[in-house]
Each structure stands twice: as structure tokens, then as C-alpha cells.
Design a protein around this nucleic acid. Sequence first.
DNA 1: AACACTGATTGTATTTTGAAAGCAGTTGCA
DNA 2: TGCAACTGCTTTCAAAATACAATCAGTGTT
Lengths: 174, 174
Amino acid sequence: MTDDHRSACPINLSLEVFGDKWSLLIIRDMIFGGKRHFRELLRSQEGISSNILADRLKTLLEIGMLTKRDDPSHKQKAIYSLTEMAIALVPIMAHLGAWGRRYLPVSEELSIRAQLMEEGGPALWERFMDELRAEHLGETGAPSGPSVRQTLQAAYEEVMNRKAKERELAGAGS
Amino acid sequence: MTDDHRSACPINLSLEVFGDKWSLLIIRDMIFGGKRHFRELLRSQEGISSNILADRLKTLLEIGMLTKRDDPSHKQKAIYSLTEMAIALVPIMAHLGAWGRRYLPVSEELSIRAQLMEEGGPALWERFMDELRAEHLGETGAPSGPSVRQTLQAAYEEVMNRKAKERELAGAGS
DNA sequence: AACACTGATTGTATTTTGAAAGCAGTTGCA
DNA sequence: TGCAACTGCTTTCAAAATACAATCAGTGTT
């Protein structure tokens, strides 16, 4: 255990955990992208390199944000799961997304999920967290109907399709 | 302007702004500590060094999270102010504090503020943000009564006094 | 005149980060 | 039985970030 902290302030300690450019993106991809394997996480929007990913996964395991187990279908595959500690970040993700959407140069397709999370509010976040608990902690009683992740993903793809169609039209007109 | 971003995802862009160990602590000290001057910010709990502080202040100014003006009382003093963009981080600070308090080894005295922010909920956050707007943006209509920051600070000092008394008693008993 | 304080800057050592390439074992397919 | 593709990860090495101490020129105080 490394308990040589700069201070015992909760905000400082939180920053010591994910106050870097990558840790929270890994959690994001697991939460919103449903990624569970090393190679899946390697294909992030931002292009994380494998040594950094390996290092962050190791740290997140040590901290207790993730757990790791073997994939029965493949002797070399590992399955990473979120712990309650990581699932509890969903509201922070939602706030971060909302803040970024308001003040930073986001793209429409990559911020549609943030918009829906913001509009859905705490009720949606709780539902999403329940789904994640069912998926990652093996808890029973997963909410019925289309999952929050699927709904967000569908909205993302809809924007992408619309944009592709718009580009097509613009191309034909030129 | 440096708009060579890794991706236009709102969470990623947010991390590009304060995805480091210091930026958010500076904002924290300005919000909760009421610090406005370089030397005040230099005396952080965590001991930031002056070159790092200067660098982060510069970056935060460029991004638009802070503004800087001369202090009329001293020709060499500069006063840093939060912008709306930074004040809008109050809810994120509250969530971060709550999360850290739940999952990380915080101390009682440094987490009492986070506890009160959590208990106060969005209504308290809004009041705090209004106070910060009055203080930093020069808006009128500052809420009356003891300020949120003073209330938090008083609670912190109360814990400190109680702990000092406890140490005294323990010392006398040994 | 002496001295502490102002927001920084400079110089240097150490640590962290990160891209590219490589690795040993596994799997699926021909 | 090859063999290519895939598995999680490690190695290498350069570059960037950070820490730490000393320093600076102007300002205010005594």
C-alpha cells in the first residue's frame, strides 16, 4: 500500500486517483462503451498506448476501482470489471460531460450521450448504475427494457448517420 | 489557441483542462479558501511549487477559467478571479468530495466541508455559486446571512479545536 | 538604510509519460 | 500441420512534466 499522500483532503485524494489524462477515460470506455478487454480499451477515441493502458489498469486494480478475472472462452483473455467505487463515478461523469459540453469545443456526435445524461438527470444515472451493477457485480434484478447504454449508443449512431447523409448531400452539390 | 485535441468528447476535453494533479486544487483553494493572490495559493495544503503554480495560473487564464487584474492597494499584487466557467465546477467539487469521502482515506477535519456540501445538496451549491459570482464577477444581490464559505470554514475550525482538546486530554493522561 | 513581501523566473535533478516495437503463448482456419 | 491473427502485456528510449532551491527587480514598512 502506498499511503504517502500529499494531504488527506477528499478532493486531493480523488485527484491522486484519477488526476491524470487517462484513468478516467478508461473508466468512461468501460461505462459507456461496455469495454471489458485490454484490446478493446486500446481502441479508444484518443489512442492510448499499450504501456500506459497496462500501467493504469494495474493502478486501478490496486486502488480497487477494477477487478480482473480470466475469460473462460480464451486462456489469454482477461475480463475487467468495475467495482462499486467506479460505478459511483457515473454522476461525476455526467457532470463532467455537462460541463465540457457547455464550455469546451465538443462535437455533436461525441456529446449527444452527455446531453442525454444531463437531460435524464439523477433518475437516469441511478438506472444506469443499476445496470452496471448487474453487468459487473453480478447482481440480480437488472432493469428491464432497452439498457441506458444501448439508448445512448443508438442516439450516437443516429447523429453519425445523419451527419453522413449531410456530407453526402453536400458532396453531390459541389 | 491550441485546438489540437485528442478527441472532441466532452469528458476528454474536460480532462485536458484539469486532468492533472494541480489545476483543480488551485480552483479548490480559490472557491473554498477564498484565496485570490499568488502567495496565498502558494501556501496550499499540498505544497505546490512556485513555477508550477505560475504555469497553471497562466494556463487557466488562457483557457478562460480565471481572470487577473491589478490590486489597487499594492502595485505588484495581482488579484485572480474565477469566471463563470470555474464557478460552474462547484457541483463537480461537491461530487468529487463526496466520492473521496466515501472511498478514500480522508481526514475528518479536511472532509467536514465535503460532508456539509453533500448534506446541503444542490440548493446549497447554488447559494455558494451565487456568493462566488458576487465576489468574483461583481454581480449584485449577494445572499444575506453568513456566507457558505464562512459556515464551512467555521465547521472546519470546530473540528480542529475539538481534536486539539482531545490531544490535550490524551497527553495529560499518558 | 534595512528588511520583508510581491509575483514570478531560472537552473538543475528527478520522475513520469508515451510511441513504437517486440514477445510468448493461444486460437481459428486451411 | 502449418500459419496468420490475436491475446495481454513488456521493453526501450526519448521527451515532457515536475520538484526543489535559489534568485530577481520592484514595492511597501520601519
